[in-house]
Amino acid sequence: MKKVAITADPIRTSQALDLLEHLGGGALASFTGIARADLGVVALELEHYPGMTERNLDALADEAMARWSLLGCVVIHRVGKIAVGEQVVIVATAAGHRAEALDACAFLIDRLKTDAAFWKKEHLGDGSALWVEAKGTDDARADKWRE
């Protein structure tokens, strides 16, 4: 079972977990990214490259499914304007045992950060906005999975 989606509508972790619960495995893992209440930030805005971004996510899901023999994998990313406190991304995995589910889940979010075509802007309470810069620490985490 594999589901990859990009949506402008609000997303919920429970949506993803419901899809993975009854696949016969003994382990479910998930990561949820939330628009963080950094100082002055009222909303995020996520932009993507229609076509390419879907393929980026699909390729990551395929890699995770094969590398950890997953029973299921869900990747849902929201785009457009997202208020602080709302969900931005959900990654969830189902496997026979916890090690595969947890590792695959970490792989998916670490590599999504560096390999999927999304760009994030922060909207501040005073009406200004600024693009978020990519972080070297994210590259280092993603590279660990290439060793």
Binding site: H48, M52, A116, F118, W119, W131, E133, A134
Partner: peptide
Amino acid sequence: LAIFPPVTGG
């Protein structure tokens, strides 16, 4: 050809 900054999703 697409030209863009380093990605920052998730």
